[in-house]
């Protein structure tokens, strides 16, 4: 039995994958709390897809893929704010326009490179077993920054999310806070690129947080439960992926979905 758990961990790539996966699980789940409460699921999905051109450019230039993705995410996140400023167009319309444009640009760039097919599938669905030591370091460094910011800005983010009008009357820097939250979301999505990929990042943002929402009526507790579900999903998903030989991203997301379904059905049964 112990062998069952230890055997995969004898490979260093599995150890790194597991660490990276759990970090991503926690990050997505914590940020996902705001995504769920503020109804930003569409935005999270859009961000995940919009980083594709950044990855493509970084690949073409032989640079760091994560860095390229980060720049693209920042551009798109701030672009959405710019276009929807002062109600010029609705925010979800701005998201729709920018996200499809960025995705198209990314695909166009990638289609010009022949050898990209393998990497593309990794970008779309994640390749948690290809996490290099430097990737792992970057994941943890960025992850620590994101988590620290969420803790420091816990109260302002709570007020901004619950009652933006109060935030404004209290003269909080609402635009700045909003942009910081967007950047945190962007960084999180970029980090999750490696474990669950562009296609499934949104699920890791939404599913654990939605499950946690059903279990508690406190924001901090919701974050902790969500983080636990996220980390466990990564852990269990990775073992499933190892033994069943399925894509790691899918295994992780499906595990999170099972958590959600169990909680949903138990809750429903109680009523």
């Amino acid at each position: 039995m112990i062998e069952f758990f230890l055997q995969p961990l004898s490979y260093s790539f599995m150890q790194r994958g597991l660490l990276a996966g759990m970090m991503v699980g926690v990050l997505c789940a914590v940020l996902g709390t705001y995504v769920v409460l503020r109804g930003m699921a569409f935005l999270g999905d859009a961000l995940a897809h919009a980083i594709l051109p950044g990855v493509a450019v970084a690949y073409l230039m032989g640079g760091n893929l994560l860095l390229g993705a980060l720049v693209a995410a920042a551009v798109v996140a701030l672009g959405i704010g710019y276009f929807s400023k002062n109600g010029a167009i609705k925010e979800d319309t701005a998201i729709g326009i920018l996200f499809s444009a960025a995705l198209s640009l990314g695909v166009a760039m990638i289609s010009s490179i022949r050898s990209f097919a393998v990497d593309l599938s990794h970008i779309l669905f994640g390749n948690v077993l290809g996490v290099s030591p430097s990737d792992l370091l970057l994941t943890f460094a960025l992850g620590a920054i994101v988590l620290l910011t969420v803790v420091l800005l816990y109260r302002p983010f709570m007020v901004l999310s619950f009652d933006p009008v109060l935030a404004a009357t209290l003269r909080l820097p609402t635009v700045l806070l909003q942009n910081i939250m967007m950047m945190l979301l962007a960084v999180t999505v970029v980090i999750s690129l490696q474990t669950v990929g562009v296609g499934l990042a949104a699920a890791m943002l939404v599913t654990p947080a939605a499950a946690a929402y059903m279990l508690t009526r406190r924001l901090s507790t919701m974050m902790i439960i969500s983080a636990l579900i996220g980390a466990l999903s990564s852990l269990i998903g990775l073992f499933l992926s190892y033994y069943l030989n399925i894509v790691s991203g899918s295994a992780i997301v499906l595990t999170a979905t099972v958590f959600f379904l169990i909680i949903f059905l138990v809750k429903k049964g109680k009523r």
Binding site: P156, L166, R217, R218, L219
Partner: peptide, 26 residues
Amino acid sequence: EEVDWRFPVTVRDVVMMGRFNSNGWI
């Protein structure tokens, strides 16, 4: 009607929001 009453906070949390600016917002 202007706020989401299903937001996961307690009564005390909401009232505390009024004290937000008294000593810096972090």
